[in-house]
Design a binder for these strands. Structure first.
Length: 425
DNA sequence: TCTGGGGTCCTAGGACCC
DNA sequence: TCTGGGGTCCTAGGACCC
């Protein structure tokens, strides 16, 4: 096994930090970002965490007095902005390591194996400063012999003020003393279930986990758990995934801003999600042949509940929107029951393969027919150039009563000319 | 009044085949 | 009391990630 070296770069409180870049007034203030429909807090600035608010808190449960007293600023999530800022960070990181895995919107793994002769902590500091200078965003960087150890190093970098946002576990003189301070629940790959199980069995920290018997781990936590243990011991088992793998399934669904009762409204919403899902499919040059539609009432409310789903197979794999829209309408009409207050519908595409491998049909038109591909390409081109939803399908509706709530949305500063930030004279 | 959305991987068990 | 062995594919459910 080759001796590897990875860095994990993670943006601090990413969504909140993005909002701060464009509104300097937010500096030092508690900032919270909401989920779709302005439901729960999904991202918090340090100041907000310090007030005892946690991720997942429904916004209506936050005491209004607290909000006023500390001037807490709450925003709807602005994924257009965050996505664009993320791309800028990743582009910056590319300059520092040829092998990079974009792991999530705010995290990337870098392979530094070839640079091990350098002072990696100093190198990481340089990365950190450059990202901050070029994008305005603060990042933390952890370095380790495996991705799991880099994650742990990042965890340390974030929490120890002395680290200046960088922690190198690879050259640390006493790795065990660090692992010993990490609770198993903070180890990458250990969720609430496994964390519970481990604690019940006297395995409380990362060091103990690294020494747990392999057979027992595999029995209880499958091969994934075993991999985690090996990674903690410095054996790299989880490869850097540099190429973005095409998705195996694409889900598009959202909760409604308010309960929806009419089939017609549900049809509009489902059509609109379907549109977006098939658009994503085309972005990846894929085709799908399985479609699933589901709907559900609000399980948090004390009222009649109903949830159902149904799948359908397309005769041939496709990425031609109308093929899916027809089916969505059919399925939804089949599973809809009147008399309920619905919270959510969703559309899922699966059985996805590359468009280049889609089978042809001698007697029926397929997605690969020129005309269909041209229409879709034209549609996508227009929407890319003129903005989302410039050209759409009538079935997505005009009124869209079901649209999600976004009452505290900031402008699309970096992706829309109208929203360019203005400098006050 | 108000509780997110979008993914992945692994395993067990059943159907089916020779 | 007895009821092969081995393989693949599919699905549902459970765990995890951000």
């Amino acid at each position: 096994m080759k001796n590897e070296c990875f860095a994990l770069v993670d943006c601090n409180n990413f969504y909140a930090a993005c909002e701060r870049v464009f509104d300097p007034e937010l500096a030092g203030k508690p900032v919270g970002i909401l989920s779709n429909n302005d439901g729960i807090i999904v991202a918090l600035s340090r100041e907000l965490k310090e007030l005892g608010i946690t991720r997942g808190t429904p916004v209506f449960k936050i005491d209004p007095h607290l909000i006023r007293k500390h001037d807490i600023r709450i925003f709807s999530s602005n994924y257009t902005l965050y996505g664009d800022m993320s791309a800028r960070v990743m582009k910056t990181l590319c300059q520092f390591a040829p092998d990079l895995e974009v792991y999530s919107i705010d995290e990337a793994f870098l392979r530094l194996t070839a640079l091990r002769h350098l002072n990696l902590a100093a190198y990481a500091l340089e990365i950190r400063e450059t990202v901050n200078r070029w994008t305005g965003l603060p990042v933390s960087i952890g370095i380790g012999a495996t991705k799991t150890l880099a994650k742990i190093a990042n965890h340390v970098a974030k929490r120890s003020p002395a680290s200046q946002g960088v922690f190198d576990l690879l050259s640390h003189p006493n790795r065990d003393s660090i692992l010993e301070k990490i609770d198993v629940k903070d180890v990458w790959g250990v969720g609430p279930r496994y964390s519970n199980l481990l604690h019940r069995n006297g395995i409380n920290n990362a060091l103990q986990l690294s020494r747990a018997p392999a057979g027992w781990i595999q029995e209880k936590m499958t091969i994934m758990g075993l991999r985690t243990v090996m990674e903690l011991n410095g054996t790299a088992c989880i490869e850097l995934e540099m190429a973005v793998e095409p998705k195996q399934e694409i889900v598009s669904s959202k909760s409604f801003g308010q309960p929806v009762t009419e089939l017609a409204d549900l049809q509009e919403a489902a059509s609109s999600y379907c549109l977006r899902a098939v658009e994503k499919l085309r972005e990846e040059q894929q085709v799908a042949s399985q479609l699933m539609v589901y709907l559900t009432t609000n399980r948090f409310r004390d009222e009649p509940q109903y949830a159902n789903f149904e799948s359908a197979h397309l005769p041939l794999p496709s990425a031609y929107t109308p093929d899916f829209l027809h089916l969505v309408r059919q399925i939804l009409a089949g599973i809809y029951r009147p008399g309920y207050r619905y919270k959510k519908v969703g559309v899922m595409l699966s059985d996805i393969i590359p468009a280049s491998k889609a089978p042809l049909d001698l007697f029926a038109p397929t997605y690969l027919d020129d005309r269909r591909q041209t229409i879709m390409a034209c549609l996508d081109g227009l929407n890319r150039k003129m903005g989302m939803h410039t050209v759409t399908y009538a079935s997505t509706g005009r009124e869209q009563h079901w649209q999600m709530k976004r009452e505290h949305l900031t402008p699309h500063y970096t992706t829309s000319w109208q929203d360019l930030p203005r400098v006050k004279a």
